Simulated scan of single mutants.
Amino acid sequence: MSQAMPQISVVVPVHDEEGAAGDLAREIAGALQGRAFEMIFVDDASRDGTRAELAAARAALPQLRVLAHGANAGQSRAVRTGVLAARGEIILTLDGDGQNPPGDGPALIDLLLASPPEVALVGGRRAKRQDSQAKLWASRWANRIRKRLLGDDADDTGCGLKAFRREAYLRLPYFDHMHRYLPALMIREGYRNLYLDVSHRPRGVGRSKYTNWSRLKASVSDLLGVIWLKSRARRPGQVVEL
């Protein structure tokens, strides 16, 4: 199956996830067994043994590809690196910390494949988040404010588990932290989004790369930027070739 052109490319950004990355790759392979898929783990300049762990895992996982950043560039750039390298028409993303169970991925993929072309994204919605009360509170208010200002339809845009069409993603403007605004950006391009409840589990090893304060500092400028992008969007209507 690794020799055939994959239909699905699973893109996983990782940074300092030694002890979790290899297990996550094996779990993804089990969840997508029987499908034409590849896994692209993008190591965002880890300082631990993440890269070596993934390299060792390739011996038993022919679908696994490992890309490595020379400098830390953030989650959105890692996702973009993976999507640019992907060969599948459908992209499935998961957070590298293992909190998104890969077993939920096929349901998102199948819904996207069964949907008309104007549906470009199926987002996960964490039904029972296994995070601290402080993180849950901050996320709840951030989602409310973002939805109010951008008019998007996502209740949980921070969920890393998403399935989307590669072609649609490549039409979106790139900026750092754009992964949090994919639903709004898809709508800006004239696409539709769908959502499914997914599971969530506690982090097994390592620690979060984000804090509520760091998210707040980035989100203010990002939100203003996406509002500006929406205000400058002009749609051409139906495009026909004469």
Score class of each variant (00 low, 15 high):
residue 88 G to A: 06
residue 10 V to C: 10
residue 75 Q to R: 14
residue 34 G to I: 03
residue 59 A to D: 12
residue 152 D to N: 07
residue 55 A to G: 15
residue 241 E to M: 14
residue 168 A to Q: 04
residue 215 R to V: 10
residue 126 R to Q: 14
residue 160 G to R: 14
residue 18 E to L: 09
residue 48 D to Y: 02
residue 25 A to D: 03
residue 37 F to A: 03
residue 92 L to F: 02
residue 204 G to R: 04
residue 52 A to T: 10
residue 29 A to L: 10
residue 177 H to N: 15
residue 152 D to S: 02
residue 24 L to K: 05
residue 188 R to H: 01
residue 154 A to D: 07
residue 242 L to V: 15
residue 82 G to Y: 00
residue 52 A to F: 03
residue 103 G to H: 14
residue 178 M to K: 08
residue 46 S to E: 07
residue 180 R to L: 15
residue 148 R to E: 13
residue 191 Y to N: 05
residue 106 P to N: 09
residue 110 D to Y: 12
residue 200 H to Y: 14
residue 168 A to T: 06
residue 115 S to M: 14
residue 1 M to E: 12
residue 165 R to I: 10
residue 240 V to I: 14
residue 43 D to K: 02
residue 217 K to S: 07
residue 58 R to P: 05
residue 238 Q to E: 15
residue 132 S to R: 07
residue 235 R to L: 13
residue 59 A to H: 10
residue 79 V to D: 11
residue 11 V to T: 02
residue 33 Q to A: 15
residue 62 P to R: 02
residue 194 L to N: 00
residue 98 G to D: 06
residue 63 Q to A: 08
residue 57 A to H: 03
residue 203 R to E: 08
residue 74 G to A: 00
residue 2 S to W: 11
residue 233 A to W: 09
residue 205 V to Y: 13
residue 51 R to Q: 14
residue 53 E to V: 05
residue 80 R to S: 14
residue 118 E to L: 09
residue 4 A to R: 09
residue 216 L to A: 05
residue 78 A to L: 04
residue 35 R to D: 03
residue 238 Q to I: 15
residue 219 S to M: 08
residue 72 N to V: 09
residue 65 R to Y: 03
residue 101 P to Q: 04
residue 53 E to D: 12
residue 115 S to F: 11
residue 41 F to I: 04
residue 107 A to G: 08
residue 239 V to G: 12
residue 40 I to W: 00
residue 11 V to F: 01
residue 239 V to R: 13
residue 103 G to L: 12
residue 241 E to H: 14
residue 170 L to F: 07
residue 177 H to E: 12
residue 113 L to T: 08
residue 118 E to C: 11
residue 240 V to P: 08
residue 199 S to D: 01
residue 108 L to I: 06
residue 122 V to G: 09
residue 188 R to C: 04
residue 78 A to Y: 03
residue 58 R to L: 01
residue 172 L to V: 06
residue 213 W to T: 14
residue 206 G to P: 03
residue 164 F to A: 02
residue 17 E to T: 02
residue 159 C to S: 13
residue 92 L to I: 07
residue 69 H to E: 01
residue 178 M to G: 06
residue 145 I to K: 09
residue 142 A to C: 11
residue 42 V to N: 05
residue 111 L to R: 13
residue 174 Y to F: 15
residue 209 K to F: 12
residue 156 D to Y: 10
residue 43 D to P: 04
residue 96 G to Y: 00
residue 66 V to M: 06
residue 86 A to G: 13
